[in-house]
């Protein structure tokens, strides 16, 4: 049982090391892109170095996803408490309507409401990211069979003890899935955020599109794809820690 998990972490570490090496050697990029696109003079986006773009992107995702997690999980837990039972249906309904709305639309709506810059993008990512986290937290807690909680109370656990010792550990896997989905969406949507002036890897892509420079596009797109895949693997590996049957 332990071996495949170990293997997954190992693969992740190797991929991560590879990613770091590629990102930090900008002259490799230059040579590779020159080789691929001989007609293009400037192959490296001049305004912001790649490392800095990646840093901005990470900052954007970490702030918004961080906010999402620290509010979304407690929110999901709160609405599953017995005192909130009446509101659960309508919240589920709102969340599912919200998830039907495309993330770009939410990002676009942020501009008329909040204007341009970093803050509107962070707010949009945060709000849209909440949906999968809240939804999965609710689903995770509701997936616990009633008799398991029953025996927890029957053994004399208080509500808090049952929450922290039983409910949260047992719904952890689904909560992690929600967080993974949310973070992956945020990494993707943050790229579009460059248009609104939030910086990040999207800046090179947008510049490339505007100036018809494929090399710039590649400079933004390849690290972004890598980042998303690495993040996805990372959270999947964490999820598998919380699988208790089999």
């Amino acid at each position: 049982m332990k071996n495949p998990k170990l293997k997954n972490w190992l693969i992740l570490i190797i991929l991560f090391a590879f990613f770091i090496v590629i990102i930090s050697n900008i002259d490799w990029w230059q040579r590779a892109l020159h080789f691929l696109f001989r007609d293009i003079e400037n192959v490296i986006y001049p305004r912001v170095p790649l490392i800095a773009m990646l840093g901005e992107h990470l900052k954007l995702v970490i702030i918004s996803s961080g906010l999402t997690i620290i509010t979304g999980v407690p929110l999901g837990i709160w609405v599953t408490r017995s005192s909130m039972r009446d509101f659960l249906d309508i919240i589920n309904n709102l969340v599912s309507i919200g998830q039907t709305i495309p993330p770009v639309a939410v990002l676009a709506l942020a501009v008329p409401v909040f204007g341009f810059g970093l803050i509107p993008v962070v707010l949009a990512l945060f709000l849209y990211g909440l949906l999968p986290v809240v939804r999965n937290t609710i689903a995770g807690i509701q997936s616990i069979p009633e008799f398991v909680l029953d025996s927890a109370y029957g053994l004399g656990m208080s509500k808090m003890q049952a929450l922290f010792k039983i409910e949260i550990p047992l719904s952890a896997r689904l909560i992690m899935t929600g967080i993974r989905i949310s973070v992956i969406i945020n990494i993707g949507t943050a790229m579009i955020g460059a248009i609104i002036g939030a910086g990040g890897l999207g800046s090179a892509v947008i510049a490339g599109l505007v100036q018809d420079n494929v090399a710039y596009i590649m400079e933004g797109v390849v690290p972004a794809a890598f980042l998303a895949i690495l993040t996805d693997r990372f959270f999947s590996n964490i999820e598998s820690i919380f699988v208790y049957n089999q």
């Binding site: 069979p145 008799f147 398991v148 029953d150 025996s151 927890a152 029957g154 039983i166 047992l170 208790y244 049957n245």
Partner: peptide, 8 residues
């Protein structure tokens, strides 16, 4: 309890 209810 009726359903055993061990914590998985």
């Amino acid at each position: 309890i009726q359903m055993v209810g061990l914590f998985p």
